[in-house]
Amino acid sequence: MKLYKIETVQHINATVEECWDFFSSPKNLQTITLDNMSFEIQDFDDKRMYPGQIITYTLKPLLGIKINWVTIITVSKENQYFIDEQRFGPYALWHHKHFFEPTENGTKMVDIVHYALPFGYLGRIMNKLVVESKLKNIFAYRQNKIEELFNSKI
């Protein structure tokens, strides 16, 4: 199994507490996801993030094909970091770490995703042809949306 990694760093003009308040609510994931992915939360317990929390949703990442995705929050330390992992979905492995670090001007947010695709060599080809660029577009959109939400305030 080939493991891939995507890492993004973003500086946010908000306190760690304000960032945590936004990012620890699964409801806000829809806000920072591309509209054309038709992201929709199906079920979660409407609580702030905690270890063991399960979130189920549907989305259409490619060619308008609807898929189910089940995520579990495996680790969460308030105002510092959390990790979500796919339990069921399109990836052979999805491990997403989110870190929040206070800075003089706000918060440094770091996202690190390790992922692997199913289907061996065919999955490697799909990563090069489609998946890697799609994920980079998704994270670029998130960064732009976060800029709009937090950093465009006067």
Rank of each mutant, 00 (worst) to 15 (best):
T107S: 05
L93E: 07
I6G: 09
V75G: 04
G123A: 09
L149F: 12
H96S: 07
T31D: 12
R48C: 11
E78W: 03
N36A: 08
R142E: 00
Q80P: 05
A140I: 13
G64T: 14
K136A: 11
M126S: 03
M109L: 13
R142I: 09
K97F: 01
N79F: 12
L34G: 00
T71A: 10
N137Q: 13
H96C: 02
D21W: 01
E147R: 08
R142Y: 04
T58Q: 13
R87T: 11
G52M: 06
P26Y: 05
W20T: 01
V70W: 06
M37E: 06
E40Q: 07
G64R: 12
I146N: 03
L63G: 13
T15K: 01
L122P: 03
D43A: 12
T56G: 09
N105C: 14
N36L: 02
L29Q: 08
Y121F: 14
N36G: 01
S24E: 05
K136L: 15
L149Q: 07
T103R: 06
A116E: 04
L93Y: 02
K66F: 04
L63W: 12
M49N: 04
T56P: 12
M37D: 02
K77L: 06
K66V: 14
Y141H: 07
K128G: 00
S76F: 00
E78D: 04
I54M: 12
P51E: 08
S76K: 10
M126H: 07
L93P: 00
S24Q: 10
Q53V: 01
Y121R: 15
Q80N: 13
E132H: 08
F99G: 05
P51Y: 09
V130F: 09
L63Q: 14
H95L: 02
S25I: 05
F88G: 00
P51Q: 06
R124T: 07
K128T: 05
L63T: 13
H114T: 03
F44H: 14
T107N: 04
G106S: 07
K128N: 06
I72H: 00
L93T: 01
T58L: 08
P61M: 10
T58S: 12
V131N: 11
R48N: 14
Q10G: 15
Q10I: 14
K77E: 15
D21Y: 05
I154R: 11
L129K: 04
T74V: 15
F150T: 00
L62C: 12
A14H: 11
I83W: 02
I72S: 03
I112D: 00
K5A: 10
S38T: 02
N151C: 10
G106T: 10
V131M: 06
I83A: 02
S152E: 14
K136Y: 04
P61F: 04
Y81W: 03
Q30G: 13
N105A: 09
L59D: 11
